[in-house]
Design a protein around this nucleic acid. Sequence first.
DNA 1: AAAAAACATCCGTATTTTCCGCAAATTTCA
DNA 2: TGAAATTTGCGGAAAATACGGATGTTTTTT
Lengths: 200, 200
Amino acid sequence: MVKINILIIGDHGLVMDGIRQLLEREPDMEVVGAVFSPTELEKDIADFQPDIIVIDAPSQRENNLIWIKNISSQFPASKVVMLSGDDNTEYVHAVHEAGAYAFVSKCDSAETLIHAIRESYRGVKSFPADLAFHDGSPLTDMELAVLDLIARDKTNSEIGEQLNISKRTVEHHVSSILRKLRVKSRAGAVGKAFRLGLLE
Amino acid sequence: MVKINILIIGDHGLVMDGIRQLLEREPDMEVVGAVFSPTELEKDIADFQPDIIVIDAPSQRENNLIWIKNISSQFPASKVVMLSGDDNTEYVHAVHEAGAYAFVSKCDSAETLIHAIRESYRGVKSFPADLAFHDGSPLTDMELAVLDLIARDKTNSEIGEQLNISKRTVEHHVSSILRKLRVKSRAGAVGKAFRLGLLE
DNA sequence: AAAAAACATCCGTATTTTCCGCAAATTTCA
DNA sequence: TGAAATTTGCGGAAAATACGGATGTTTTTT
């Protein structure tokens, strides 16, 4: 079985260990790493290749938002689940705007966190009910259009003709798609897109 | 909207025209061609690229079976819907064994034929209820294994290592996959495989 | 049991496509 | 007004694909 790879980011070793224990009890989850407020977040993500990043940072709330923005824009295949003691509406909204997939209050149960991780992995966002959200693709409209044509057996040149852009521009979109989905090949991108529900 | 491309093969021009009229009334279907008992079936399939081939041949029953076998083995992306006036059990069974996706008796209604075409297009076989059938992949086990790894972002070399075969052999399987699914690229193969239900 | 068909394995060569790095102008939107 | 998106170019290495050819095994058919 393919497990959900989870990276934990936090400040409190004790709390992070507790979360790790909680998640390791689940047969479909694996904590591949736990790092303290990272200075090299990109490297950590590249190393651990997490499907889910659980951020548990009681302080430095601005930093959290910056991290989330960076992750969701540069590594959208790693989905952020925010675990916070502060659940005022503005903050929750800011976390969502930043691109996180879930917001779980520390007042919630462990089941809530686990459920939020599974849902995020499936591409479904989980936020407090008082906010209405839409699931967004991490890809832009143009990237999605390109990806769709890739899945329909088109070459970059053909895609360029069809979308009235140059072959070179298509190549650029393709490389953005590969980076965002964290794959090496267009075939891998198509596979991942179907599994993530981006295509059907 | 992407229409279902249909090629009609038959002996009786009048009947074929009637079928064409029936099918053209459906907004999601397009009859891309109609040929009499073809001498160059391969060429016709390559030209018309049909999703569905409706065979309506009252005579030469052996030929029908041979055609179906050739189509299903060499061009499995074109699914055969057999339209026959002869619906004795042995013949229905032979048609199924040959690799057709549906068997419709001429005693049936037009709706039955249209439904059978849509189901076949989705990869679901339609045969008289007295026979039990299983949907089969047109790909061999090895080809399916290769295709799965392609969808998981692997290169041919990586696939070779993983399956303990040479890169060359992988290339051979890939070309078989492309031919059978009638696509030009591995990315197109992955897209088609997901849509046909070969992968998930 | 023998013949035929399908499957799996391997190799060479030539061409096409993909993918990456570097750089930069224009548009769009919050 | 910045940040993100879109657009395009050049050049080059790597991967994929097409086109041939060859051999042994397994399965199916006769």
